[in-house]
């Protein structure tokens, strides 16, 4: 069975994410334990709300463990604020450094549309990526956020969504990837995406 480790950065309710991962066949553990994170092969970093609280919760032992796991070839999926943390910096309530695993900055979506952006929106300009295998082009996903990366340089943007402006809804580089939306709340398309990530992280030749 595929194993997935959900990193609990102290923010929000992770039970439904764990339920979705189990639904697609993962043996799923929610943890705050650095040692568990360090030795995991398949990591999921969720988060809701603001950028800074989970960032500060990660700083220190958990972040060291996460980087250690990545150095050892682990796969990482960030979700919502967990996705935002993958980038270089966030501009919510002042500038905060992110994990810097993906290039780019998290900024407030431009005005002219209601914020927060709550509800189902479609992906467009999807790149050919194994995360989208079996996910029909233009599929809808459930979003709840006001901030996002407006650009992800160096070809790391994997799909865009439009709300007021185009923003990067899915980004990734090598074994690190993430979604601004909540795949665990996005029906069949979201479950398929989670299953694809599990499959990637457990493929025999992964990381080579």
């Amino acid at each position: 069975m595929s194993k997935a480790t959900v990193i609990d950065a102290g923010i929000g309710n992770l039970d439904n994410l764990a339920r979705a991962l189990r639904h697609v066949g993962a043996e799923c553990e929610v943890t705050t334990d650095a040692e568990t994170v360090a030795t995991s092969r398949c990591l999921v970093l969720p988060g809701v709300g603001a950028f800074r609280p989970p960032r500060e919760a990660l700083r220190g032992a958990l972040e060291d463990a996460l980087r250690h796991a990545l150095d050892r070839g682990a796969w990482l999926l960030g979700i919502c604020v967990g996705y935002q943390l993958l980038f270089e910096r966030g501009e919510e309530f002042g500038v905060t450094d992110g994990l810097g695993l993906l290039p780019g900055t998290i900024t407030r979506l431009p005005g002219g549309v209601p914020l927060p952006h709550i509800g189902w929106n479609a992906l467009h300009d999807e790149r050919d990526h194994p995360l989208f295998e079996g996910v029909p082009a233009g599929s809808y996903f459930y979003f709840v956020h006001s901030f996002a990366p407006l650009a992800a340089p160096n070809g790391t943007a994997l799909a865009l969504t439009t709300h007021g402006a185009r923003f990067v809804a899915v980004a990734g580089r090598d074994r690190v990837m993430g979604t601004q939306f909540h795949p665990e709340k996005s029906g069949a398309a979201g479950l398929r995406l989670l299953a694809n990530f599990l499959g990637l992280s457990h493929a025999v030749d992964s990381g080579n």
């Binding site: 002219g112 549309v113 952006h117 509800g119 189902w120 929106n121 479609a122 467009h124 809808y140 979003f143 969504t161 439009t162 709300h163 007021g164 402006a165």
Partner: peptide, 9 residues
Amino acid sequence: MNTGLTCRV
């Protein structure tokens, strides 16, 4: 409005 956001039922 420039958004792909859908109305919810």
